[in-house]
Design a protein around this nucleic acid. Structure first.
Length: 459
RNA sequence: GCCCCCAUCGUCCAGCGGCCUAGGACGCCUCCCUUUCAAGGAGGUAACACGGGUUCGAAUCCCGUUGGGGGUACCA
């Protein structure tokens, strides 16, 4: 098997799913998965983008076998193959420009596409030309797709496609087909959008006399909200976006495995080793799958909660390291609050706003929360005063703070849920966050009192 | 237009002729727990696109219709 991305930017979610399925199946059957970088489109390719591919695969935890193949290294082979086809009379030169072809079709009232005009005109090699493959007039090409069953294309509807451009560079079909042959690929697992080029590749293989078996499995497409192929127009398609958004690689891989496939026992969240074990290429779905971020985040939350404490802490440090106040992160304080935060995250990106109050001089105030709990709350001043008094002497533990707070809140005729609101906002700046008393314990008496007084002064 | 692919809850996946008054997960709603928010627990909402066959029996097989998608490049 092989994964053959072209380095045109950050790895696409669809590509990530494609490698994953190749990898799962390769590991399941004990096959080999090769990596080939299709870097022949010089205009759009940049060397540093190849690094992005390696980096993404590493992040996902997907490995490959053997040396990486750079398609550009095989240019001579691609050219030789085109010449061979030409020499065998299985391809021919064509000097018609796309405009001329369109014009002829218009005049003749025929269907769009190449009309075979130069098939037997023996165009001179001295003239600017492309090389086209001579598709057989009769018959058809078909294959048994591992996911879809038999698929057949009549030759009569296949036009004589271009093998080599006017500028002399070989087309994708040639490079791709030839490299697959040379690399000994026996199974191609790729997106459904490539179904229509498959008969052409099969035709080229046959023309070259390659009788070796090759199988295909065309994966359903991953679609966006509009039910169309996931593209830049309909959502975040770059794997990197999710990485930056605080999605754990294990969660991403687990979720991706569920797009177009499901384990027979219905257990969705499980170790990758089990997924490899259970994965079956022939049971992959045939219909497009919607990329559901909600479910991705839900799975991500499960993965975060399942993290061992020290592992979670390590990821927290990494997440906070990109904050402007990263220097002020106190490791002990972070470690103390971490257990309270772990069950509250769906993505690691939600972490900073949950713990920033511990590391900033003054809390980052959320205006709406402040207004509701303090400015517009008649009970706020009394509660803050009571808290200042109580917290000045109370034993500094969550339990003591809890009972002390409960006492003055109930004295004010309120429930704890409502009474703690002004205190929470005064101390953390927000109305939601980790449990209040545990947070205060970590913050410390001095800073807590200072923030309560500051808030009281505004009432 | 032509070619190819597809069609079960809003979404993802089960279902492979009787076990289906269609199951699980995410989402959504209700309740419980509760120190906000989560987490956790208990419920609920919600689908076999349609029409013909085949069969004793169809979500499952066949045909058609409709709908969706992909492709139709001297892109990959």
């Amino acid at each position: 098997m092989r994964f053959a991305p072209s380095p045109t930017g950050s790895l696409h979610i669809g590509s990530a799913r494609t490698v994953l399925f190749n990898w799962l199946w390769a590991r399941h059957v004990g096959g080999e998965l090769l990596l080939r970088i299709e870097d022949t489109d010089r205009e759009r390719n940049q060397p540093e983008l190849i690094e992005v591919i390696y980096d993404s695969l590493e992040w996902l935890g997907i490995d490959y076998d053997g040396e990486v193949v750079l398609q550009s290294d095989n240019a001579a082979r691609h050219h030789a193959v085109v010449e061979e086809l030409l020499a065998k009379g299985l391809a021919y030169r064509c000097d018609s420009t796309p405009e001329e072809i369109a014009e002829r079709n218009k005049v003749a009232g025929g269907p769009p596409g190449y009309d075979g005009y130069n098939r037997d005109r023996d165009v001179s090699a001295a003239v600017p030309h492309v090389v086209r493959f001579r598709v057989p007039d009769d018959g058809s090409t078909s294959w048994v797709d591992l996911i879809r069953g038999e698929i057949t294309f009549e030759h009569s509807i296949l036009e004589d496609f271009v093998l080599r451009r006017r500028d002399g560079s070989p087309m994708f079909i040639v490079a791709n087909a030839v490299d697959d042959i040379d690399m000994g690929i026996t199974l191609v697992i790729r997106g459904e959008d490539l179904i229509s080029v498959t008969p052409k590749m099969l035709l080229v293989r046959r023309a070259l006399g390659i009788g070796e078996p090759i199988e295909f499995a065309h994966l359903p497409l991953i679609v966006g909200a509009d039910r169309k192929k996931l593209s830049k127009r309909n959502g975040d398609v770059a794997l990197d976006n999710y990485r930056e958004a605080g999605i754990l690689p294990e969660a991403m891989v687990n979720y991706l495995a569920l797009l177009g496939w499901g384990p027979p026992d219905g257990v969705e969240i499980r170790p990758i080793t089990e997924i490899i074990d259970l994965f079956e290429i022939s049971s992959v779905n045939q219909a497009g799958a919607f990329f559901d971020i909600k479910k991705l985040e839900s799975i991500n939350g499960e993965y975060i909660r399942a993290l061992p404490a020290d592992d979670f802490l390590t990821r927290c440090r990494a997440e906070l390291s990109t904050q402007p106040w990263a220097q002020r992160v106190d490791d002990d304080a972070l470690a103390a609050i971490a257990p309270e935060v772990q069950t509250r995250l769906r993505t690691m990106r939600e972490l900073p706003t949950m713990v920033d109050f511990l590391f900033l001089d003054a809390p980052d105030i959320d205006g709406a929360s402040w207004a509701k709990a303090i400015s517009d709350n008649d009970a706020a001043s009394g509660l803050l005063d009571a808290a200042i008094v109580a917290y000045s002497t109370v034993d500094w533990s969550a339990e003591s703070l809890h009972s002390a707070t409960l006492a003055f809140v109930e004295a004010a005729g309120l429930k704890l849920g409502k009474g703690q609101a002004p205190i929470r906002v005064a101390v953390t700046g927000r109305s939601v966050g980790p449990p209040l008393f545990e947070s205060i314990v970590v913050l410390g008496r001095e800073r807590t009192l200072a923030r309560l007084s500051a808030a009281r002064a505004t009432c």
